[in-house]
């Protein structure tokens, strides 16, 4: 009886520690510096944000998957939008577009559901806390999400 109880307790403890390892951002230690930019390397983990829409009936959310070793990518989730010309995805330091404050990470064409879009980790830092969906041809912000 006691060994069975201990086994159940051990299973419960193990499963909860696994969830922590997946969902919680790493907080241990200081982040090393990116030698290319001098910016602190982002810490690993997940960040999430819901889109605020301005144009093209944009809806959905975005998750940032960050791994300090393998790189980073964002994933658009439950994302819908009326198609537009030359629609790009940026990570940005602010909720508006400017060349100086953004890194382009991809473009949206026919299909954009369940796509992973890689972020060039060499230039990325945690100051880029917004994801913009932006029509470059007409300089129109379709929507943005703040990553938290």
């Amino acid at each position: 009886m006691i060994p069975k109880f201990l086994a159940i307790v051990a299973l419960v403890l193990l499963s909860s520690s696994c969830e922590d390892a997946v969902d919680s951002p790493s907080t241990s230690g200081s982040n090393p510096t990116n030698p290319a930019t001098g910016n602190p390397r982002p810490s690993g983990g997940l960040k999430h944000g819901a889109f605020t829409s301005y144009e093209h009936n944009l809806k959905g959310s975005v998750t940032l998957h960050l791994d300090t070793l393998d790189g980073a990518f964002i994933r658009l989730e439950e994302f819908t939008m009326l198609q537009g010309p030359d629609v790009r995805v940026y990570v940005s330091k602010s909720n508006n577009y400017s060349q100086a404050n953004t890194i382009e990470i991809g473009s949206l064409k026919d299909s954009y559901l369940n796509e992973n879009i890689d972020i060039p980790i060499a230039n990325y830092s945690e100051t880029y806390k917004f994801v913009l969906v932006y029509c470059l041809e007409f300089h129109s912000l379709f929507g943005y999400a703040e990553l938290e």
């Binding site: 301005y54 602010s94 909720n95 508006n96 577009y97 400017s98 060349q99 100086a100 404050n101 300089h139 129109s140 912000l141 943005y144």
Partner: peptide
């Protein structure tokens, strides 16, 4: 008309459109 703000010095806590 609706205007998009294009500026690297746009202050936080404002709507970008």
């Amino acid at each position: 008309r609706q205007f998009n703000i294009i500026s690297s010095s746009f202050d936080a806590n404002q709507q970008p459109v």
